[in-house]
Amino acid sequence: MNLYTKKINAASEWLGNAMGLFTLIMVLLMAAIVILRYGFDVGTVAMQEGVLYLHGAALLLGAGYTLKHDDHVRVDVFYRSVTARTQHLTNFIGHLFLLMPVVVFVFVMSFEYVLNSWDMMETSPEPGGLAFVYIQKSLLLLFCVCLFIQALAMMINDFVAFRQLSHKGAR
């Protein structure tokens, strides 16, 4: 169990850093697009779509990393004032009954949609666009996997912490 959470956390961390690199590339690529187009009258839709692909990857694949760092916004009117034990319980229940159903459901509903895109080897409808729409769409499935695995690791942590805090409270 401990090994699992450690490995998952490390993987999320690695993925988060990789997505960070993506955002930097996005900035450089976008600047290059503008400079090339308005300075040299050169431009391709492929570059524009490249930024869009990186953008989608960073947002979706970064979701687990963001969850790990607890950076998803909460309405913390009550949350901030309850005990750590209750916070762990809230997160455990939330992951189990809100997050898990959502990511499993989105995965199931998206599966055929993504598969269809692979089937067609879907390309961009734009002139000179990228021919990897199926990879862009696959991000939806990867998003679900990232969030699911990270949430599982966090539920283990929450469960352990909740048990420990409960024992302390009982003593």
Binding site: H72, R74, V75, V82, T90, G94, V102
Partner: peptide, 17 residues
């Protein structure tokens, strides 16, 4: 939402269920 669980997942999860 008042539970303090992340907003995005409350919106999505509660609506779906």
């Amino acid at each position: 939402l008042m539970s303090g669980y992340p907003v995005a997942l409350v919106l999505a999860g509660t609506s779906l269920l």
